[in-house]
């Protein structure tokens, strides 16, 4: 069982960069752990710290004006490597929602499998949200999974999520629970296709 997701009200952190790949989210040299915990320390490692390991002042995660459980990023978020460590790192850091206008497929699956909700919004909504956060970092954002709605100030948009994944997130279910219930059918298929 995973943590259940219903409604989240939080401020957000803007990252107005497109094509953020999973190598930026968590560089390969930090993929060596054999557990799922602790990856948050190295989230966006090479954008957060310089080569002397000092925090870089201009990066959003290092700016005290920004906080909250919602990461808002440019389009094609999570492209590249399939490393689930990227989703683990974002979750471990404390984010529960990532908002973008476009997500890479594997990242989206990985996020959903870990209780991290990817919210796909229109390009114009994303632009407006990023600008608002940069201007007014205390802006409150509401993400309602049941109604599939995201709202800040007076701007509300409906977002898509497939019904099955919504049920999983709402109830904290894993895909594996469903697949295990099909064990006999799978065995039969396996034997007839040896």
């Amino acid at each position: 069982m995973k943590e259940k997701f219903t409604t989240l009200v939080s401020t957000g952190v803007p990252l107005p960069i497109e094509n953020i790949d999973t190598d930026q989210i968590i560089p390969a040299r930090f993929l060596k752990a054999t557990t799922r915990e602790g990856f948050g320390d190295n989230l966006f490692r090479d954008w957060r710290y310089d080569s002397a390991q000092n925090p870089m002042a201009d990066f959003a995660l290092n700016q005290s004006r920004y906080s909250g459980k919602i990461l808002v990023a440019g389009k094609n978020f999570g492209c590249g490597s399939s490393r689930e460590h990227a989703a683990w790192a974002i979750y471990d850091y404390g984010f529960r929602v990532v908002v973008s206008s476009f997500f890479a497929d594997i990242f989206k699956n990985n996020a959903l499998n870990n209780g991290l909700l990817p919210v796909v919004v229109s390009d114009s909504y994303l632009r407006s949200l990023l600008e608002t956060l940069e201007r007014e970092p205390n802006t409150s954002i509401t993400v309602n999974l049941q109604d599939q709605k995201i709202k800040f100030n007076d701007r509300e948009e409906w977002f898509e999520i497939n019904a099955y994944k919504k049920t999983c997130l709402t109830n904290g279910y894993d895909d594996i629970d469903y697949l295990l219930s099909l064990r006999n059918e799978i065995k039969e298929y396996d034997l007839s296709h040896a």
């Binding site: 490393r83 689930e84 594997i106 499998n113 894993d174 895909d175 594996i176 697949l179």
Partner: peptide, 9 residues
């Protein structure tokens, strides 16, 4: 390609 949760599945 798949993620680790899917590798487990």
């Amino acid at each position: 390609g798949i993620g680790t949760s899917e590798v487990e599945q």
